[in-house]
């Protein structure tokens, strides 16, 4: 088995604790991310997938549980220099390209901010060279370096965000819906680029998205989240062929495919969370159905899934 880069153990992220509007955004989620792999995380908005990503990178302080990066707890007490070291290893590409770029900085300064902080460039010329190269890798031109974010379209801004994340040469990137705002042709460029970078530099990705066909393409394993829980985790192909949890099935049935014929016959499966009929003290947890294929279910359902499961 590959080396674990990240271990997420019983991670909990609650908001408004103790108040009537308490939200369990992430509720006891456990999974590992292996070195060099891409783990896809899918689910509806509000299911906690973005919060999971943000808690892993310590944008939120976890309510409970642990995140181990190379065996080291991310959420422990840390000195400034420790945090800096850690920040360089883990980067994030954000969902909203409009809110994640400082409107008062030029593109060159936005991209080079990390380079400056970590002292990665030797001299001004080298700094700009890096910026130009990064711009090119994300599909922009040299001339864009001196412009401001408002001069770009949403798609172009997202590419700037990706260039910024790549600037400090991290080990692990959390990509929170990085391609949702991009055009199909550009999406493919970015995904190819991300895959290429992964091969060359051994990057590890947590890829959060709701575009399931792209997620399947880029991910080695996929986790499906629903209401703060992970309901199914399996290798990408396995998940599509042998989805077991009814929510996963419903999610898969909702994807429109670029094929008019199959679209005419596609039927959506609806998911009703009440259909589980969990009893008061029934133990509902992740159970391993097949090697690497985990489903969130009760003992009774587990037996049922086992009989349904086909090799």
């Amino acid at each position: 088995m590959a080396e674990k880069l990240l271990e997420i153990k019983h991670l909990k992220q609650y908001f408004n604790i103790g108040r009537p509007n308490q939200v369990k955004a992430v509720d006891d989620v456990t999974f590992d991310i292996y070195k060099g792999e891409t783990l896809g995380l899918v689910g509806e908005s509000g299911c906690g997938k973005s919060t999971t990503g943000r808690t892993i990178i310590r944008l939120y302080d976890a309510t409970g549980g642990q995140v181990l990066f190379n065996g080291e707890d991310v959420h422990g007490k840390k000195s400034k220099s420790e945090l800096k070291k850690f920040n360089r290893k883990m980067q994030m590409i954000f969902q909203d390209p409009y809110a994640s770029l400082n409107p008062r900085m030029t593109v060159a300064d936005i991209i080079a901010e990390g380079i400056d902080i970590h002292g990665l460039a030797k001299g001004k010329k080298n700094r700009m060279e890096r910026v130009y190269q990064l711009l090119e890798t994300v599909g922009l031109n040299k001339e864009h370096a001196n412009r401001y974010p408002h001069e770009f379209s949403g798609g172009q801004r997202q590419r700037i965000g990706i260039a910024r994340a790549l600037a400090v040469e991290p080990e692990f990137i959390i990509a929170d819906e990085p391609i949702s705002a991009l055009d199909v042709s550009i999406q493919a460029q970015v995904v190819n680029l991300m895959k290429k970078l992964q091969r060359e530099k051994g990057l590890t990705y947590l890829f959060i998205a709701h575009d399931l066909s792209m997620v399947k393409y880029i991910s080695d394993r996929i986790g499906v989240m629903y209401f703060g829980k992970m309901v199914e985790l399996a290798p990408a192909d396995e998940l599509y062929k042998n989805a077991m949890h009814p929510y996963t099935k419903s999610l898969l049935s909702a994807i429109p495919l670029p094929d008019p014929e199959s679209e005419r016959t596609r039927r959506r499966i609806l998911y009703d969370p009440a259909a589980h009929h969990y009893e008061e003290n029934e133990k509902v947890e992740m159970r391993e159905l097949a090697p690497g294929h985990l489903v969130f279910c009760s003992e009774k359902e587990f037996e049922q899934y086992k009989t349904q499961y086909k090799k």
């Binding site: 199909v184 066909s213 994807i255």
Partner: peptide, 13 residues
């Protein structure tokens, strides 16, 4: 440039 659900990982888009 669109991945289809049955296109493999290895294949470049």
């Amino acid at each position: 440039s669109m991945p289809s659900l049955d296109s493999s990982h290895e294949e470049e888009l």
